[in-house]
């Protein structure tokens, strides 16, 4: 039961990514809504949770898409989740715009990370600079717009727990 909510959120996000967002092109780039989950998990739960959620989200996406090797998104999203979690540890989150800015930066960095991972594992053609900048900007803007509702969803799906394992109310 503990995993039902995160599984549901993950399922909805992957469905949205592979249907709605796969069809919506903006300046030749698509949104990357699945990347929001590790970012939101990193913001709300820290680096360990960010990394774990990133790994699971990426692996699930890897199993559904058909043009990249299995493990590609798992590797990229794990790094994104961890880095966001690391950043949030040093930030006092008093202002609403800090998660928005974090999502913007982390998403752009995430696109670049995926391109670097792709380069390392021999997926050619990801480093077309104009295209990469366009993709990074589109993904960053979209994710910055969606991060606040996504944080609420993440808190609902993965509430913080106390050391004894009790859930902390959202």
């Amino acid at each position: 039961m503990k995993y039902a909510r995160p599984a549901f959120v993950l399922f909805v996000l992957i469905t949205l990514q592979t249907t709605l967002f796969a069809d919506l092109d903006l300046f030749g780039a698509k949104g990357d809504i699945t990347m929001l989950l590790p970012i939101a998990a990193g913001i709300t739960g820290g680096r360990e949770r960010g990394a774990i959620v990133g790994f699971i989200t990426g692996l699930c996406l890897d199993l559904v898409v058909h043009g990249t090797p299995t493990g590609f998104f798992a590797l990229g999203y794990t790094l994104v989740g961890y880095v966001v979690g690391m950043l949030q540890a040093g930030v006092l989150r008093a202002a609403w715009w800090i998660p928005v800015l974090t999502a913007f930066g982390a998403s752009a960095l995430g696109v670049l990370t995926l391109a670097v991972v792709g380069k390392f594992i021999g997926i050619e053609g990801l480093f077309v600079v104009n295209h990469l900048v366009r993709v990074a900007l589109v993904v960053a803007v979209l994710n910055a717009l969606l991060i606040l509702p996504m944080i609420r969803v993440t808190k609902w799906a993965m509430p913080a727990t106390t050391r004894s394992g009790r859930m902390v109310p959202v």
């Binding site: 820290g46 680096r47 360990e48 774990i52 090797p69």
Partner: peptide, 25 residues
Amino acid sequence: RRSGRSRFTLALLLLTSITVLTLDF
């Protein structure tokens, strides 16, 4: 201790991802 554990988790997840990638290749 928490920081060490999260680094260990990160290493484990990255290693798993790389293993999966290698197997796929």
